[in-house]
Amino acid sequence: MEILFDERLIEARRKRALAGHDPNAAFLLQIAGRELADRLAVVERRFETAVELHGGPGIAAREALATGKIGAMRRVESSPGFAAAGEDIATAPWEDVPLEPESINLVLSPLTLHLVNDTPGTLVRIRRALKPDGLFLAAIPGAGTLSELRDVLLSAEAELTGGASPRVIPFADVRDIGALLQRAGFALPVVDIETYTVRYDSLFPLMRDLRAMGMTNPLAGRSRAPVTRRFFVRAAELYAERHSDPDGRVRATFSIVYASGWAPHESQQQPLKPGSAKMRLAEALGKATG
């Protein structure tokens, strides 16, 4: 398995973000948490046991509980420090899924799967943890996220040094995420994408938000060379030139893929077996056009 992300660095930056406790920087988790809750609210059933995997401050868990669709919610985090006052949470390493087979009715994954090295394996473990007809709901930053930042960081580095190294992680395409759900054995997978544009005065407040979210570059192959202030000043100039609105504020794109899938169960709708159709396709088309 290729190690794309530095797991220890991810954990260190998440803990630093937690210690900084900037509630304004939690806007992306708040958006994702509300959207996951809205999707849960329209499911016509109740989930007796639910787990939120590595949801940081637990925003998605609280939003989901507020729907009234959940009997009991457990949270799994990498450190006890993520627990609220008086809250009891389970702890497990960042990429672990510490759940017994067929033990949970609902699993929530808010904005974490994009930083997992073994995404297919993690999805398989989540699917195995679900009881038959259990539901998996995830919010995953997808392709297009921070595209403006990627553009100007690469351009500034190439201009100043003659080369460039990746400074924004790769994000998966919505179709790739759908394929991964199918590969992991989820039934009735559904994926769609919502794009949010956030405006900033300049590149620097955006970078502060990313640090406060724990979302700065965790690539294992990142450049270790020191970054000068000149580099960021030039990147900010390029950002203003290429990605600003008439009022001078710059745009940052966050594209969130919302994914759902069910643990297989005999009650679910099944595709027809080959050859079982009552009418040939040509006959059906003839009826439709005749």
Rank of each mutant, 00 (worst) to 15 (best):
P264C: 01
R127K: 13
K287M: 13
L206W: 04
D38A: 15
T67H: 08
R229G: 11
A32L: 09
A252V: 02
P166S: 04
L272A: 15
P80H: 10
P218S: 04
E35D: 09
E241I: 00
S165H: 15
V191H: 06
R14L: 13
A225D: 04
H265A: 15
A61H: 04
T67M: 06
A60I: 05
S147V: 09
L181M: 12
M1V: 07
M279N: 06
R222K: 10
R13P: 01
R34C: 08
V116Q: 14
L36A: 11
V250I: 12
A26C: 06
V76K: 08
G81T: 01
R34D: 12
I31L: 15
R75M: 11
R62S: 12
A288L: 15
E237S: 12
V198C: 00
G86T: 02
G261M: 05
S103P: 08
E159T: 14
L272G: 07
L106S: 10
V107C: 10
A259T: 10
A164H: 14
R8H: 13
T122I: 02
K278F: 04
R229T: 02
A17K: 00
V107F: 13
R224N: 06
L40S: 08
V76W: 02
P120L: 02
L115G: 01
Y200K: 04
I89A: 05
G290L: 04
A50K: 05
P205H: 02
R167F: 03
E194M: 10
V168D: 03
Q270H: 10
E194S: 15
P189K: 07
M215P: 00
A92D: 04
A60E: 03
L108T: 11
V97K: 05
A212S: 13
P226M: 02
L160F: 09
G185M: 06
I256C: 03
I59K: 00
K131Q: 11
V124I: 14
R34P: 00
D192E: 12
R8Q: 13
A90I: 14
F254A: 01
A236C: 06
A129R: 13
Q182R: 13
A92Q: 06
S202T: 11
Q182N: 08
A139G: 15
G261Y: 10
E266H: 08
A277N: 09
A284L: 15
I126W: 05
P166Q: 07
E102M: 03
A60N: 12
G286K: 14
T112P: 01
A139C: 07
D96R: 09
E148H: 09
G185N: 05
A83H: 11
S244T: 02
L108A: 12
A85L: 13
R62N: 05
H21A: 14
I169K: 02
L153H: 09
G71F: 06
L149H: 08
D247N: 13
M207W: 03
L160M: 14
V168Y: 03
L137G: 11
V51N: 04
F231D: 01
R183P: 01
A64C: 15
K131Y: 03
G261E: 09
Q270R: 15
A17T: 00
L113T: 05
A240T: 14
L115E: 00
T119P: 03
L99D: 06
Q182A: 14
V124P: 01
E2W: 05
G33L: 03
R208N: 04
M279Y: 12
R242A: 11
L130W: 15
R211Q: 00
E44F: 03
V168L: 06
G144M: 09
D192F: 15
S165V: 05
L203G: 01
A72G: 02
L238R: 10
P271E: 02
A72R: 11
